[in-house]
Every structure is written in structure tokens, then in C-alpha cells.
Design a protein around this nucleic acid. Structure first.
Lengths: 139, 139
DNA sequence: TATTGACTTGAAGTGCGCTTCATAGTTTAT
DNA sequence: ATAAACTATGAAGCGCACTTCAAGTCAATA
């Protein structure tokens, strides 16, 4: 069992965020001790980590909430959940190609800058030339 | 030369977003015709596409703005720009590993659901069992 | 002539994902 | 006994990235 502060430390989220996630039903109701303080179990922590993973993939709060809601409703909702996960996968794949494009562009920029900084004449490069270089793909 | 509407159609952004980007200095001042209507050049369009690419990688508006500002200032700012691009690259790499983790998790979920849906007995799966399955990594 | 439609502007509004605030209760240390 | 440390709550606030609104200009069309 972990206190709010401990759970926050373990997960890297703030206690406020943990309360927010609970309020938004991304987490089950967290157990309380005699003082009404939250007591996070190891399973809660694991679940929080999974939510963090989903959030890192930009899956919106309401989407995670819907998923959790179906999960709680149980086996009858299996197909719906399957479709949701498929949609998440499509989202993730789209983001991966977007990121790959940005990666490639950024790589090109880095090479460009490295070349320019290696030479000693970069201060002669005019604004308009450089601007155009960027406009036409950084090569 | 393209009108606001045409530029919007080509880039997939709204005219409002294009104006917003211009206001925020992500774009240079766009040329105007006699009626003060914007006239986007091919170079403007290319530049907008580059901004879109950066936005897809979640590079914040203010960061792009700072970069463009340095670019306009010219050659003296080369090292600063180089550092900025290096930082963008670090960001992008971090996002890529996060996305890869989400991808792996989602893949596992899909396999799990496929197995479950292939069998005919999934309606006997209890809430608590399923919940735990997810809590412990979906396998 | 009057209306339609594409455009202009600054300002206000929206949705998301937290974060901070104000207030209060309980336990532990000085 | 007072203060520090931790927790609780609901409500309000914030930063970002747009989006929508209200009011106006201008040119062409019915």
C-alpha cells in the first residue's frame, strides 16, 4: 500500500493528477484508510502506469475513460473494446509516420547545420539563401 | 499565387489557422493583392508544410516562432539554431520510444482480444479476471 | 440596387489536461 | 500548545492551440 505522495513519486505524476484521473474514472475508486487517505495498491500503480503509456501515445482522457468503463461492464463489451483498441492502434501508427517524417526532416537540418558550422564562411550566408534552403527541403 | 481558401485547401489547415500562424510569426508577412487579400506563394506553401511537419512532432508554436525569429535574424544565430534543432531531435526521439511502447502494449491487447474472440467462451470471463489481465500486462 | 461571397480585423470563446487555490481535518514533532 | 507535514474536497484558474464571432470592406452578380 502506498500513500498519495508515494504513488506520485513512483509514477512520476502529481498527487493532483492522480486525484484527477480518479475523478475522471480512469482509475477505480482507490481504497482509503481510517483517515480517509488514499491507499494505492500495487495493482493500482500498475494500472496507472498503463494509463501513462496510453497518455504518452496521446490517447485522450475521455477515450481511456470510455475504455475503462467498458472494461468494468465486463465480457459483453468485448467487441466494442476490441474496436476501440484497433482505433487506438490506427492512431498510434499515424503518429509514428508523422514522427518519422519529422525525424527525417530534423536529421536533414542537423546535417545541414553541421556542414555549415564546419566551414568557416557561414557568416556570409545571406538570409534569403538560408530561408530558401529551408523552404526547399533542407538539403 | 493562392488565395486564403486555396492555401487552406492545399495545406489542409483552416484559413483561421493560417492567419493565426502568421500572427504568431511562424510565417513571414504574406503578400497582399490590391484588395488586401492574402496571396500565398509556392514558397509560403512549402514553408507551411514544414511547419505542419514540426507541429506533427508536437514542437510548440512558441518554439517554432523562436526558431523562425532566429532564422530571420540570419547567420549570426547559426549556433543557437543548431542547438534548437538538436533539442527538437531529442524531443522527437523521446516521443518515438514512448510511441513504440504504446505500440507494443496495444499490439499485445489486440492479440489478447483476438484470442478471446476466437474462442466462444469469452462471456464466461469474469470482470475481475479481465481487469487483472490488463493490470498485469495484457499477455 | 441590393445581395452574395470571399476576404479583412481584433476580440472573445472553446476544449483539453492538468494545476492551483481555499479551506479544513488529523497526526507528529518541538 | 503551536506548528509542520500530510491528507482531503470542490472550484477556479491556466496555457496551449486553435476556432468562432462580430463587424466591416470590396467586387461581382441577379
Amino acid at each position: 500500500m502506498y500513500s498519495a505522495k508515494e504513488a506520485a513519486k513512483i509514477t512520476g505524476l502529481s498527487t493532483a493528477t492522480l486525484r484527477y484521473y480518479e475523478k475522471e474514472k480512469l482509475l477505480p475508486q482507490i481504497a482509503r484508510n481510517s483517515q480517509k487517505y488514499r491507499q494505492y495498491t500495487d495493482e493500482d500503480i500498475e494500472w496507472i502506469k498503463m494509463i501513462q503509456c496510453m497518455r504518452m501515445a496521446n490517447i485522450p482522457i475521455h477515450s481511456i475513460k470510455d475504455y475503462v468503463s467498458l472494461l468494468i461492464q465486463g465480457g459483453e463489451t468485448l467487441e466494442q473494446r476490441f474496436v476501440m483498441v484497433q482505433n487506438h492502434m490506427e492512431d498510434i501508427k499515424k503518429q509514428m509516420t508523422d514522427l518519422q517524417n519529422a525525424f527525417d526532416l530534423t536529421q536533414k537540418k542537423l546535417l545541414f547545420y553541421e556542414k555549415l558550422l564546419a566551414g568557416s564562411s557561414y557568416k556570409e550566408m545571406s538570409y534569403s539563401e538560408e530561408w530558401k534552403l529551408f523552404k526547399h527541403g533542407e538539403n
